[in-house]
């Protein structure tokens, strides 16, 4: 089941570790095919909003989850995905 966009960003970083914005965009693009809102700008904006609440951090162009972010993402994923 697909998660809300920002949670999907968090889920991706949880699975794959640090990634740059372009990698995040190309990885998620097939999932959001045909959805008008999805763009590289939307990905950057989503990551920035996650960074503002301390869920992700940016270092040297790579985005990764913080410890707090890992906990928040796990808690918000469906139970089948939390383990």
């Amino acid at each position: 089941m697909m998660q809300p966009f920002r949670l999907a960003l968090g889920e991706l970083l949880l699975d794959r570790g640090a990634m740059d914005g372009e990698e995040v965009f190309t990885t998620l693009a097939p999932r959001y095919e045909g959805e008008g809102f999805f763009s590289s700008g939307a990905v950057l904006q989503g990551l920035q909003s996650l960074a503002a609440t301390g869920i992700v951090r940016e270092a040297w162009g790579k985005w990764s989850l913080t410890r707090y972010g890992e906990d928040r993402v796990r808690r918000n994923l469906p139970k089948t995905r939390q383990a």
Partner: peptide, 18 residues
Amino acid sequence: WRTGRLRELVRSAASRPG
């Protein structure tokens, strides 16, 4: 609808943060 977010609306409402 105009910004292509209607599917996002449905999946968000069904999610935990939703």
